[in-house]
Simulated assay, not measured.
Amino acid sequence: MTNSDYLLKAAIKKVTEKLNEILVEKIEEAAHIAQDAPEILKKEFDSLKESIIEEASRLEKAENIEENESTNTYQDPKIKKALNEIEGINKQIDLFNKTINNQIK
Rank of each mutant, 00 (worst) to 15 (best):
M1T: 04
M1C: 03
T2S: 10
N3P: 06
S4M: 07
S4V: 04
D5V: 10
Y6Q: 14
L7R: 05
L7P: 08
K9G: 01
K9S: 12
K9F: 01
A10H: 00
A10I: 01
I12L: 09
I12E: 03
K13C: 09
K13Q: 10
K14Y: 03
K14I: 03
V15C: 08
V15T: 07
E17A: 15
E17T: 08
L19C: 05
N20G: 11
N20D: 01
I22E: 15
I22W: 06
I22T: 14
L23T: 15
L23M: 13
L23C: 14
L23I: 12
V24G: 11
V24E: 13
E25A: 01
E25K: 11
K26L: 07
E28M: 03
E28F: 02
A30R: 11
A31G: 00
H32I: 12
H32A: 15
A34I: 01
D36P: 03
A37S: 10
P38R: 00
P38N: 05
P38L: 03
P38H: 00
E39C: 04
E39H: 12
I40C: 02
K42A: 03
K42F: 04
K43Y: 06
E44S: 06
F45H: 14
F45I: 05
F45K: 15
D46G: 01
K49N: 06
K49I: 01
E50R: 02
E50V: 04
S51Y: 05
S51H: 10
I53S: 05
I53F: 01
I53M: 02
E55S: 04
A56G: 13
A56K: 13
S57M: 07
R58S: 14
R58H: 09
L59E: 14
L59I: 12
L59S: 13
E60N: 07
E60G: 01
K61M: 11
A62G: 02
A62D: 07
E63Q: 11
N64A: 09
I65M: 10
E66S: 08
E66R: 15
E67F: 10
N68K: 07
S70K: 06
S70G: 04
T71E: 13
T73F: 06
Y74L: 08
Q75E: 12
Q75R: 12
D76Q: 09
P77Q: 02
K78L: 01
K78Q: 14
I79D: 05
K81A: 13
K81H: 14
K81P: 08
K81D: 13
K81T: 11
A82L: 09
L83N: 07
E85A: 09
I86R: 10
E87D: 15
E87Y: 10
G88R: 13
G88W: 00
G88A: 11
K91P: 05
K91D: 15
K91T: 12
Q92I: 00
Q92R: 11
Q92S: 05
D94C: 04
D94I: 02
F96N: 14
F96S: 11
I100R: 03
I100W: 00
I100C: 00
N102C: 00
Q103G: 06
I104L: 06
I104G: 02
K105A: 11
K105G: 08
K105I: 02
